[in-house]
């Protein structure tokens, strides 16, 4: 059987909110390592990889590797029924086609369980090669979300350019053009407010803002976001999940033919 218990249930609610608009159906992989998922959006332009390590849960039991196919909109509907302070338990018995979500209020005076049907999902796993990125930007996640939102009112694509000056986000459209430059700023009171740019090589890449905006749904999960770029490679936009793991979004660039 498979069972996990997460006292900070709101994390799981936030994780679902971060992926449900990008991916419709996905296989969750349960193993001794943890609870993970890899899925592409329907047009195969973006990929999301989630890992919640087993050590991060208050209780984690996985007798054998298990794949649970779930409709993420339905899963999100169920997790929305959990209170923000609730403890969430996910359970699945071997050989059944359902998963149970159990929600306990902090004072244990309300206990709910929701059973959801699992689905068979034909999904392909992609091998993500280890890469040395030419530029890595760490910045406040709310700032990145703000930039993506602001630029989408100007154009459909963002050009992200890292030079020794800093990182420039540019968009252009019918009404005009916008450039937002963020410089390295490590001298802040709180580390979560820092912007750190590690650059081996200057790199410029173009991306669809629609996907970037979808990735920023993960903003409530982490104060900082890490954006890793190399020429002609998908960008990686990573949000840590409080000491448990991460959500990584990979987005294929737009390339001039």
């Amino acid at each position: 059987m498979f069972e996990l218990r997460l006292v900070q249930g709101s994390l799981l609610k936030k994780v679902l909110e971060s992926i449900k608009d990008l991916v419709n159906d996905a296989n969750f992989d349960c193993s001794s390592t943890g609870f993970s998922l890899q899925a592409m959006d329907s047009s195969h332009v973006a990929l999301v990889a989630l890992l919640l390590r087993s050590e991060g849960f208050e209780h984690y039991r996985c007798d054998r590797n298990l794949t649970m196919g779930m409709n993420l909109a339905n899963m999100a509907k169920m997790l929305k029924c959990a209170g923000n302070d609730d403890i969430i338990t996910i359970k699945a018995d071997d050989g059944t086609d359902t998963v149970t979500f159990m929600f306990e209020s902090p004072s244990q005076d309300k206990i709910s369980d929701f059973e959801m049907k699992l689905m068979d999902i034909d999904s392909e796993h992609l091998g993500i090669p280890e890469a040395e990125y030419e530029a890595i930007i760490r910045m406040p996640s709310a700032e990145f979300a703000r930039i993506c939102r602001d630029l989408s009112s100007i154009g459909d694509t963002v050009v992200i350019s890292v030079t020794k000056e800093g990182v420039r986000f540019s968009a252009r459209g019918d009404i005009g053009a916008a450039n937002i430059v963020c410089r390295q700023n490590a001298t802040v009171d709180k580390p979560e407010d820092a912007t750190i740019i590690e650059m081996q090589e200057p790199v410029t890449l173009t991306f669809a803002l629609r996907y970037m905006n979808s990735f920023t749904k993960a903003t409530p999960l982490a104060e900082q976001v890490t954006i890793s770029m190399s020429s002609d490679l998908p960008v990686v936009v990573e949000y840590k999940v409080a000491g448990m793991g991460y959500i990584r979004y990979y987005l294929a660039p737009k390339i001039e033919e």
């Binding site: 332009v45 992609l126 091998g127 090669p129 669809a208 998908p234 294929a252 001039e256």
Partner: peptide, 14 residues
């Protein structure tokens, strides 16, 4: 303009 590529162009299927 630039052409949108798919992620499967960069990452191989296992």
């Amino acid at each position: 303009g630039p052409k949108q590529h798919t992620i499967t162009k960069f990452f191989q299927k296992l």
